[in-house]
């Protein structure tokens, strides 16, 4: 199932139960998959057109009235374009607005550099009170949305629209603010978020063949970090690699470094965008271009372990 199908199906159920939930789009309802909700809930869905700044303000106004608005647009327009609107009208004003940024990082694929957000997490992570959730697969997203909608604080939901490589099975239970140890190991901790969890698991399998047991952690929320799960693992393995579909400045590598610098200083190897802009390309081409593949993670682990 695509991420956006899981999104629409879950919201359809949630909106039927909770008449305070509203949808706002900025002329991307069709690509983002919210369009069917307009037929089901015509009084609570608003397409403002191509005006992201206004969309954030309108959402804040709806929230001040007790509604629970969710705004949708591509990740760069949901963050860098409306940074001040989110900082002031939403976060500083303490308004309950949920922000969905779709196709983050390389998942923007053929939309290229203008649409390829490698900085969205960095921007929002520095705004107080903001929760940042990086969706791993469609199954997890479907479980995360009801828990996120139960919060009365702003949340940034970062999700690709289409591609969802299943990581979690039917028995999986998502718990908001908890990281998942998706593979237990003793030699190194690979901390990954979003689409990089799948790559990390693939790298773990390659390493296992060589007798290296990597523990893979899906952190799920980049802010707040599940510090306990990370520290428990790192104190055991004493080696860390981080993996993110984002600039290593301001994202997962930064967040983990900030935690470990304080609690358990050690060398951390980063897989992620090394301070570059995006470009057009297909998913696998971009994974290779930005050194995000399982082989890159495999090499990073060996390098970190001096093997």
């Amino acid at each position: 199932m695509e991420f956006r199908q899981a999104l629409e199906q879950t919201l359809s159920v949630l909106m039927a139960k909770d008449e305070k939930i509203c949808i706002l789009d900025a002329d991307l309802a069709k690509p983002n998959g919210t369009a069917p909700l307009y037929q089901k809930f015509p009084n609570r869905c608003f397409d403002v057109g191509i005006q992201e700044a206004n969309m954030i303000g309108v959402a804040a106004g709806l929230a001040s009235y007790g509604f629970k608005p969710i705004v949708f647009t591509f990740a760069p327009f949901a963050t860098r374009r409306v940074c001040d609107q989110i900082a002031v009208s939403v976060s500083y004003a303490m308004q309950n607005v949920k922000i969905v940024g779709t196709d983050p990082g390389i998942t923007a694929e053929l939309n290229g550099g203008t649409h390829m957000s490698f900085e969205d997490v960095a921007i929002l992570r520095s705004i107080p009170k903001m929760t940042i959730y990086d969706a791993v697969d469609a199954n997890q997203l479907a479980q995360a949305l009801p828990q996120i909608m139960n919060l009365d604080t702003p949340v940034y939901i970062r999700m690709p629209r289409k591609l969802s490589t299943p990581v979690f099975d039917d028995n999986y239970k998502f718990k908001l603010f908890k990281a998942d140890v998706v593979s237990v190991g003793t030699d190194i901790t690979i901390i990954a978020s979003g689409i990089m969890v799948h790559e990390a698991i693939e790298a773990m399998k390659m390493l296992k063949e060589e007798g290296i047991n990597a523990e893979v952690i899906s952190i799920n929320t980049i802010k707040p970090l599940d510090e306990e799960t990370i520290l428990t693992s790192v104190k055991k393995t004493k080696h860390v690699v981080t993996c993110e579909n984002h600039n290593i400045i301001g994202g997962v590598y930064s967040a983990v470094s900030e935690l470990l610098a304080k609690e358990y200083p050690l060398k951390i190897t980063a897989i992620g965008i090394k301070d570059r802009f995006g470009q057009v390309g297909k998913y696998n081409e971009l994974l290779k271009e930005y050194n995000l593949t399982k082989i890159d993670i495999y090499n990073a682990v060996k390098n970190n372990l001096n093997k």
Binding site: M55, G57, A60, G61, L62, Y65, P69, S89
Partner: peptide, 8 residues
Amino acid sequence: SCAVGMSL
């Protein structure tokens, strides 16, 4: 924009 949201 916030006032527009309130009006809605």
